[in-house]
Design a protein around this nucleic acid. Structure first.
Lengths: 325, 325
DNA sequence: TGTCAGAATTAGAGCGCTCTAACAGGTGGG
DNA sequence: CCCACCTGTTAGAGCGCTCTAATTCTGACA
C-alpha cells in the first residue's frame, strides 16, 4: 500500500475502495499509526482551522460564545484552535502564534488592541471581531445591539410604572457602555422621562459604592438599570446593607444574563445577549467571506432579549394607573 | 542569506552575528515574512508544546488552573495548546486532535473518560491529570487534598462551638465528593461529634432542595458543611425562603471558593483549592518527567486553605465556653 | 477477444522548515 | 607563514504528509 493511499483513507476520500479502506485502517491500528497534523497542515494548501483569540478565560460570557463557535465550526467541518492570551498579557503575541499556524481565518473575542495594529497584523486574513464594534475595512463584526438592549430595559421598567429610572453606567472604554447609555437616553426621552446617568465601572465594587450614592439622592429612583450584571449585584449588596429592599423599594435590572444573575439567590432581571448565536454567526460570516469571496465588511448587530426575574416589579399604584393610558 | 540563517535568527540562536541578525529581521519585516509553525513543528524533532484538554469552559474553576499552566509554561518556554472538548461531547476526539499535533505532553483537566481508555490513547506520552485521582501507571496526578480540606472545614466549625455539623454531599461519581465525606467523618469522629451526611448533587438546585430537608429535621444542625459552593448557594436561597437566617440560625460553609462565593452578596465561607499552583505544578511535573526521564508515577495532593467570610459565626454561648477547654 | 471508459492506486515532486556536517574567514601560536 | 581553532554561515537531506499526473485495474460493450 502506498503512502498516498493511506492519506486518502484518512481524509475519507470517496475514491478508495471499501475493502482497501478497511485493510488500511486495520493496518494503522495494528501499527499504532496516528496522522501527523503538522505534516498535513504543511503539505495541504489549506489548514481548515480557524483561530480564536480568547482573552479572558474567567469570563463565562466568552464560554457561551466559544460554544457557539464550536457548534458552527463542527457543522461546517472546520477545526477550532483557541489561543488564550494570558490575562492582560500580550495580545499581539497570542495572535501571532495563531497566525504562525496558518489558519484560514481568525475570530477575535473582544480584542483590546488598537484597530490599526490589529489590521496590520492580520493583513488580508479573514477576521471577525466579536463583542467590539470597530470601524475598519476588512474586519467583520458581530456585536450585541446594546442600544436596543438598553431600550428594552427602559421600556420594560416604564411599563411597570417606573418613571424615575436611573442608569448606572460602566467606564468610558468599557464594552457597550456608550451604546447602553445611548439606548437608555433615547428610550427615556421617547417616553417623556428624564434620563439620569450615574458613572461607575463594570465591577461589583463600583455597584456597591453606587448604592450609597443613590441612597443619598434627594429624589431616589424607583428603578435602577445597571449597565451590567456585576454592577447590579454590587448594587444589590449595597442596597441590602442600607436597608433598601429590592424589588420592594427599588427595582433593579442588569445586563448580560451572567450565571450570577441566574442563581436563585440573586435572581436578577437582566438583558440577555444571544451569545451562542453570536459565536455561530462569527464562523458563518468568516466562511461566507472566504467561500463566497466577499470583499465588503459586514456588521451584525444581534437583538438581545429581556429576561424577567425577581428584582423588578410594578410600582404598586402608579403601575396599574399608567398601564391604562 | 541562506534559509538556514533565517531559521537560526528566528530561533534566537546565539551563533549568529548581531549585524546579520538585524539585517535578517529587517528583510523579514520588509517582505512580511512570518515563520510557518507547521513546517517548524514538522522539521524539528520536538514541538515544545503541551496540549491541555479543557472540558468545561464554563467552569471558572478551570480558568484559574489554566492560568497557572500558562504561567509555568511561559517560564519554562513551552507553548500551550488548548483543546476544548465541546461540552459533554467526545473527549476522545478532542484528545486525538491534540495528539495529532504531536505535543511533548498532555495535561487533562478533570477528564471523565475511563482510565484504561485514556491510557491506551495517550500511550507513552507524558500525561498529567489534574483534578481527578486515578490509579494508573504512567499518569501523574495533581489534586486537591479533599480529605484535609473537609477536615479543615469541620475543625473550624468545631472551634466556633458547633457540634451538630451536617455534611451535604455531592453525587457518588462527582469529583472529590467521596474524599470530602471521608475527611468530614474522620474529623467529626476525632472531635467526638457524630457525623451526619445528607446526600445531594453538586448543584444549586440540590442545595435548595436540601434546605427543606434540613429544616424538617428533629434536631436541626447548627452548621452545615456543603460539599461545594453551588450546593451552599442553593442552601442559602433555601434557608432564606424558609426564614432561616445565615449565619444567625445556622452557619454555612462551602467548598471551592468559586467567584460566586466571593461576591459580596453571597460572601460565603469556603475552602479554597490552590488552583493556580495546581496548574503550575502540572506543567512542572510534566517537564520533570520529560527532562529527568522519570519513570515512576507521582501524585501531588495540594493543601487547601480556609477562607473565612460571613456565612459562619460562633455559637453565641457555647462557642466561648468551648474555646476555654 | 479487444477496446475503452471509469475507478482505484501509485510515483514523485514539493510544502517550509530544522539539522548535520561541511565550509569560509579571521586570529593567534608555534 | 602555516596550521589549528573558533566563529559564523551555508549546502543539502529529510520531516510526513498532499497533490498532480501517470499508471494499473475492472468491467461493459462491440
Amino acid at each position: 500500500m502506498s503512502r498516498a493511499l493511506v492519506s486518502l483513507v484518512f481524509r475519507n476520500s470517496p475514491k478508495v475502495a471499501d475493502d482497501t479502506r478497511s485493510r488500511v485502517i486495520a493496518a494503522a491500528e495494528r501499527l499504532g499509526y496516528r496522522p501527523n497534523a503538522n505534516a498535513r497542515r504543511l503539505a495541504s494548501r489549506t489548514t481548515d482551522t480557524v483561530g480564536v483569540l480568547l482573552r479572558d478565560l474567567h469570563n463565562p460570557f466568552f464560554a457561551d460564545i466559544v460554544d457557539g463557535i464550536e457548534t458552527a465550526a463542527d457543522r461546517k467541518n472546520v477545526q477550532v484552535l483557541i489561543s488564550h492570551g494570558r490575562r492582560g498579557a500580550d495580545e499581539v503575541s497570542a495572535v501571532e502564534s495563531l497566525l504562525e499556524l496558518r489558519p484560514i481565518g481568525l475570530v477575535l473575542l473582544s480584542p483590546s488592541l488598537p484597530t490599526r495594529a490589529m489590521a496590520a497584523q492580520v493583513g488580508t486574513l479573514p477576521t471577525v471581531i466579536v463583542g467590539r464594534e470597530v470601524r475598519q475595512r476588512g474586519f467583520d463584526i458581530v456585536v450585541d445591539d446594546d442600544v436596543r438592549g438598553a431600550e428594552l430595559a427602559v421600556r420594560y421598567l416604564h411599563k411597570l410604572g417606573h418613571r424615575r429610572i436611573l442608569h448606572v453606567t460602566g467606564g468610558p472604554g468599557e464594552a457597550g457602555a456608550a451604546q447602553r447609555i445611548r439606548g437608555y437616553e433615547r428610550a427615556m426621552r421617547a417616553l417623556g422621562a428624564t434620563p439620569r446617568v450615574l458613572p461607575a465601572r463594570f465591577s461589583e465594587e463600583a455597584g456597591f459604592a453606587a448604592a450609597e450614592v443613590i441612597a443619598g439622592m434627594d429624589e431616589m429612583p424607583t428603578a435602577v438599570f445597571a449597565a451590567n450584571d456585576l454592577i447590579a449585584v454590587g448594587l444589590l449588596s449595597g442596597f441590602d446593607q442600607l436597608g433598601i429592599r429590592v424589588p420592594d423599594d427599588v427595582s433593579l435590572l442588569g445586563y448580560d444574563n451572567t450565571s450570577l444573575a441566574r442563581t436563585r439567590h440573586i435572581d436578577l432581571t437582566t438583558i440577555d445577549q444571544p451569545r451562542r448565536a453570536m459565536g455561530e454567526l462569527a464562523i458563518e460570516t468568516l466562511l461566507e467571506r472566504l467561500y463566497r469571496d466577499r470583499q465588503r465588511s459586514t456588521i451584525h448587530r444581534m437583538m438581545p432579549t429581556l429576561v424577567i426575574r425577581s428584582t423588578t416589579r410594578p410600582i404598586p399604584a402608579a403601575g396599574a394607573e399608567e398601564r391604562t393610558r
